[in-house]
Design a protein around this nucleic acid. Sequence first.
DNA 1: CCTAAATCCTATATGACATATAGGATTTAG
DNA 2: CTAAATCCTATATGTCATATAGGATTTAGG
Lengths: 143, 143
Amino acid sequence: MISKRAKYALNALRELARDEKGGPLSAAIIAERGHIPVKFLEAILLDLNRAGIILSKRGRNGGHVLRKPATEIQMAEVLRLFDGAIGLVPCVTYNYYERCEECVDEETCGIRDVFVGIRAATVKLLQSATLADVLKRERKLRN
Amino acid sequence: MISKRAKYALNALRELARDEKGGPLSAAIIAERGHIPVKFLEAILLDLNRAGIILSKRGRNGGHVLRKPATEIQMAEVLRLFDGAIGLVPCVTYNYYERCEECVDEETCGIRDVFVGIRAATVKLLQSATLADVLKRERKLRN
DNA sequence: CCTAAATCCTATATGACATATAGGATTTAG
DNA sequence: CTAAATCCTATATGTCATATAGGATTTAGG
């Protein structure tokens, strides 16, 4: 299961993608539209800003916009940012690799081999799922 | 990430599969071979027994054996037993379905749509991964 | 029958983490 | 100058995963 932080982040980014050509959206508005606790969302938006995914403007008429086009923001990037590794076991991830303490021989572990395959499939799907793709899916689902 | 309970369970089951035609294995032996805390493993084996995956015999010369052939025990079954839902969000699972609180319209949610695809791919891989398959992979990896 | 070896069972410690809130400091436009 | 917004730090809070303790029960064999 992904964390609520990650889920809220995805929801917030979807709102920004929908608004891509409009003005900046405030945390309060995003929170309302996405049914997200405001203060919690603020922290999430801060992380997204620091990670270079959104651009946040302070002060009156401030708010948040996507820093890149919606075609270039992948769900994979967002999940990695908030939840770290995507794999189901620590020994199958690229960026967060960690040996399993109990592991006897990683090289010949058949269990690991299965999880390697799952990670590959998952990452592929999460990389092809950009915010633009998410909106496209929604248009399709509405018919 | 899957829980340690689930990982330990898979490791323990692999030991039993390797031993499939031998006598029952005690928790102590499995724990030693799999580098698992004994008492913790005991509780896990108890769950596996209650779930009908292994058969446990008490008393002297007691121990645990697979209740079904290794070709019929899927990793999917084991993960579901210990970690519950396999999907990355509660709204995409068959057996543990739960609506996302913050969800506005599940039917047309593009984010959910992506996770539906991931769950399908993951479940497929976990179902085809039986204990026999795991052992087969290990023989292959040793070459 | 007795003992050793094993599973079975319940309770509990404990530490980590995710979720969430509080309260304010800072910036910015009008 | 003020209102609206982000930014920042600290903290509460509860839940859960991991793990251990201590014994009750069963079973085979000498």
